[in-house]
């Protein structure tokens, strides 16, 4: 009993250091946006002949969930955590998996409730995709900046991802939920992200430090 209480207290401390309260608030706000957007389409500027593209809102509503899930891996005590043992990595993996599952449940439920089941599936797929991007971004620029690669991915896919009628093969966010290829791609992106999370720290590089100050 004491051990369980101690473990819970450990987890609570981990959660406080990793902004889990803020992540919960972020998830709540993102869920509200997902409910509001429902299954509606967003009309955004694009490169095709029309000059705009109409995309399912889930191509955008999944981004905040992914960024909050990956961004919460940042810790207020990052400088001390650098020298942590293997326990921290396990905790981070459990943390990320839990956050991703919770995000999937929230966006899936919100989109299904206000849109359609197919839209909910697309939302979950896009969440997986952007979560991979966010982890890669955290690795490249620091965990506080987990939003950079997902945003870049969104911009590229939104602007160049469709010929005005059909999405291109690589614009996975635009594919309908039964496109097996898009699910494979989303899974591959998440795998890349997890690999980025598990990779050992980089050797010292001056460039990376000056691109975005670590603090």
């Amino acid at each position: 009993m004491i051990a369980v209480t101690a473990r819970r207290a450990d987890l609570l401390r981990y959660g406080r250091a990793h902004h889990l309260g803020q992540m919960a608030l972020g998830f709540a706000a993102a869920t509200a946006v997902a409910c509001w957007a429902g299954n509606s389409d967003l009309v955004l500027p694009a490169a095709n002949g029309n000059g705009w593209t109409e995309m399912a809102s889930t191509a955008a509503t999944a981004i905040p969930f992914a960024v909050f899930a990956a961004g919460s891996l940042h810790s207020a005590m990052a400088s001390l955590e650098q020298a942590a043992g293997g326990r921290l990595l396990k905790a981070e993996l459990v943390h990320f998996a839990g956050a991703l599952l919770l995000a999937a449940a929230l966006i899936g439920t919100a989109t299904a409730a206000t849109g359609s089941a197919g839209g909910a599936a697309e939302a979950v797929r896009n969440l997986i995709l952007y979560a991979g991007f966010a982890l890669v971004s955290g690795r490249l620029f620091g965990r506080s900046l987990s939003w950079i690669v997902p945003l870049a991915g969104f911009v590229v896919v939104d602007f160049w991802g469709s010929d005005g009628v059909h999405p291109y093969w690589w614009a996975w966010q635009f594919h309908v939920y039964d496109s097996a290829w898009s699910w494979v791609a989303a899974g591959a992106c998440l795998a890349c992200g997890l690999a980025a999370l598990l990779l050992p720290p980089r050797p010292l590089t001056g460039t990376a430090r000056s691109l975005w100050p670590a603090r």
């Binding site: 902004h19 803020q22 955004l44 961004g71 987990s146």
Partner: peptide, 19 residues
């Protein structure tokens, strides 16, 4: 001072201007 502020700002700009 939250680390999430930049990401939240991006989301506000995105959804505010789109929706």
């Amino acid at each position: 001072s939250s680390r999430f502020v930049p990401a939240i700002t991006v989301a506000v700009c995105l959804f505010g201007q789109t929706m």
